[in-house]
Simulated assay, not measured.
Amino acid sequence: MEHTHTSLRRGWTTGSCATAAAKAAWAALCGQGFPDPVTITLPAGQSVAFALAAHGLGPDGAWAEVVKDAGDDPDVTHGAHVRVDVRRGASGSGVVFRAGPGVGTVTLPGLPIPPGEPAINPVPRRMIRTALTGADGHEPDAEVIISIAGGEEMARHTLNGRLGIVGGLSILGTTGIVVPFSCAAWIDSIHRGVDVARALGLPHVAGCTGDVSERATRALYDLPEEAMLEMGDFAGGLLKYLRRHPVARVTIGGGVAKMTKLAQGFLDLHSRRGQADMGRLAALAQGIGAPDALTGAIARAHSVAAAFALAAEAGHPLGPAVARGAWQTAGDVLAGTPCALDVLLFDRAGTLVARHGPHPVTG
């Protein structure tokens, strides 16, 4: 059953949780006690209240903790304990951010936060500064340390390592709200991967649909890890960003089913966005000289992989034509850029089935 945004419960970003915890801890440090629930303002102006899971006050600072609720989104950080310690900073320092246990540090250029800084993105930083600023509009001198229990292990299931964020999670959020199944965080990670590759001066990047195609593509071209972009189903998200932020060479790699969808004009390759059209695949086979019996069998095939197997056995392999079609779809998105583009098709074992390119993108 396909999920819809209207039937699913929204959640809160790690940035929103950290803002609430920071505001509560700062209020206590200023002698106002711990507000519980604590109300913060999201970037669009909405007010949201958060319950505190725990808090404490010591001679040198205060801390508060909020448990992240990601709503109905399958977010790896759902249920994470986001803790913020605050203490007074040196006069004139303003709000200074530190990475506590479970929060990563940026090590590569190209991200919105420079190397050496804690991986706390600009919008959460702005939200926290606003939450700590008093009615007089004066930003306080405060040190804000954000921690996430178990964050380093959670980060192993994210794209942080590839982006050069080490030691834990990123504190993310642009709206403060998690929209279930929006996949915005994944697409944002793809974009940040492009930014890192460009900042490192890499001439060749590759976006692949899964682990098998990624390993095979990386081995084929001996690419560094920073050149590999975990595109998944979001071919459009990658290609449209590369159109605005081009590199010299782009490789798109994937299994036969996903690449057939790309060849048929799909830029979102997820199954919920539709299946490959077997009739069109049969017509493609006819165009390369397949007899009627084979094209009929392809049209009735239960999967793209089965159709590829039928065509290969009959001596009319579909791979080259599908690779050419996928190249055309991707090339149309990249038209007008200085990119050279190639498309790779792999079977389930990672064996190269077909390749088209690299050729310059024109148009």
Rank of each mutant, 00 (worst) to 15 (best):
P59F: 01
A80Y: 01
E230C: 11
R324W: 07
C183Q: 15
D332F: 06
M154E: 02
T13M: 12
M127D: 05
L169C: 04
G150A: 12
L42R: 14
A206C: 15
V106I: 11
L108Y: 01
V179Q: 12
P112I: 05
A51V: 13
G116I: 05
L202I: 11
R83P: 00
A323H: 06
V194Q: 02
G265D: 09
A49K: 04
D195S: 07
A18W: 04
R83W: 04
R273F: 10
T105R: 15
H359N: 11
T251E: 04
A64T: 06
R324L: 10
G168F: 05
L8T: 14
G11T: 01
A227W: 01
P109Y: 03
T337V: 06
R324P: 00
R348G: 11
G167H: 03
I113D: 05
R129A: 11
P140I: 04
T337C: 09
H5R: 15
A248E: 10
V196C: 03
V144N: 05
E225P: 00
V196T: 09
R9M: 01
I165Q: 01
R272Q: 09
L242S: 06
K261F: 01
R244N: 08
C339Q: 09
R249I: 00
I40S: 03
G207P: 02
G61Q: 11
I177A: 08
L294N: 01
T105D: 04
D36K: 04
R162Q: 02
A321V: 14
R324E: 13
V322F: 07
G151H: 09
I145T: 15
A349N: 12
M278A: 07
L29V: 10
G207R: 03
P224I: 00
H5W: 11
G357C: 07
A135T: 14
G319T: 00
A142P: 08
D75T: 11
H270F: 10
A184V: 10
A301H: 03
A20Q: 07
D141L: 01
V96L: 12
L238T: 08
V353F: 03
R10M: 08
V48H: 00
P118S: 07
R348P: 07
G58E: 12
L238V: 06
A27M: 08
D75G: 02
G61V: 12
T337K: 02
L239D: 04
R88T: 14
L132C: 01
A119N: 03
A335Q: 13
P43Q: 00
V67F: 03
